[in-house]
Simulated scan of single mutants.
Amino acid sequence: MRILTLAAALLLAGCAALAPVPETAGIDAVLIGEQHDAEAHGRIQERWVSTLAKRGQLGAVALEMAEQGTSTAGLPATASDEQVREALKWNKGTGWPWERYGPAIMAAVRAGVPVVGGNLSREQLREAMKDSTLDVLLPGPALKAQQQAIRRGHCDMLPENQVQPMTRVQIARDISMARAISSSAAPGKTVVLLAGSGHVLPDLGVPQHLPRTLVARSVLLPSQETGKDYCEEFRKQQEHRQQRKQAAR
């Protein structure tokens, strides 16, 4: 697989919402990495999808936010939001805010372009935690970097015995999204993946699991300050889980 990484500073110079969507001729897949709670990112994603659709270059939209096997392919371009949500099983408690991702998804549907899920179900995620075959799918340095990213992503508060299972989950999800992209790829078209920034990193994420013949570009959207203390929120979540465990004894 050939990975072309476009620096966010180059692509999104100045006002990110107004930066032009570059030409994607010859690019099989564009992997857009977002910050899940950055409001501006939803607008950028919609603009990418809408622009490529208008150019006739959009082949499909793959989502971290929906499970593999779900698709809007059977729906008409006039489908309602509710029909699209049902097709993607968005109504089954996904936790992803529709108001954030709906505009990009509906732009693809209105253009007659399929939107497909790329994530794993909760049961599959639990199975991945125990799957030791996932430990050998990344080169040694990349695996260690992925493990370190898991630690940092949990503010170095994750018990060490959970690092390996959580790393397996990350890898399994990357593989699932890579399969969604590969199965949707078509000559002369570009598949757009919408996922968290960690999933689109060329050395660690989805690009590692794409076919070598597929030309992909990873685009990291710039981080946005939200005023949240993520580590404090995670600490409180951990304390709450511990309290529930103790109460259940």
Rank of each mutant, 00 (worst) to 15 (best):
R2L: 15
T5E: 15
T5Y: 14
A7D: 13
A7T: 11
A7P: 10
A8V: 06
G14M: 03
G14S: 02
A16F: 02
V21C: 06
E23Q: 15
G26L: 10
D28S: 09
D28Q: 06
E34D: 08
E34S: 05
D37R: 13
A40Y: 07
R43K: 12
Q45V: 01
E46V: 04
A53Q: 02
A53I: 03
K54H: 05
G56D: 08
L58F: 12
V61Q: 06
A62K: 06
A62G: 15
E64S: 04
M65V: 09
Q68K: 14
G69C: 08
T70G: 04
S71I: 12
S71V: 12
L75W: 12
P76R: 13
T78F: 05
Q83W: 02
A87Y: 00
N91D: 15
K92L: 14
G95F: 11
G95L: 13
G95I: 13
E99L: 13
E99W: 14
P103N: 13
I105G: 02
M106V: 07
A107M: 11
A111K: 11
A111G: 12
V113A: 04
P114E: 04
G118K: 03
N119L: 05
R122Y: 08
R122F: 07
Q124C: 08
L125R: 11
D131T: 02
S132A: 13
L137T: 07
L138Q: 00
P139M: 03
G140Q: 14
L143H: 03
L143I: 00
K144L: 15
A145S: 12
A145Q: 13
Q146W: 01
M157D: 12
L158R: 01
M166V: 07
R173Q: 04
S176N: 04
A185V: 15
A185R: 09
A185C: 10
A186H: 10
A186S: 14
K189I: 05
V192N: 02
G198H: 14
V200M: 06
L204Q: 06
L204T: 01
G205M: 05
G205T: 09
P207M: 06
Q208S: 08
Q208G: 01
R212Y: 05
A216V: 11
Q224I: 11
G227Y: 08
E233R: 13
E233N: 14
R241G: 02
R241A: 06
Q243D: 09
Q246M: 10
A248P: 00
R249Y: 01
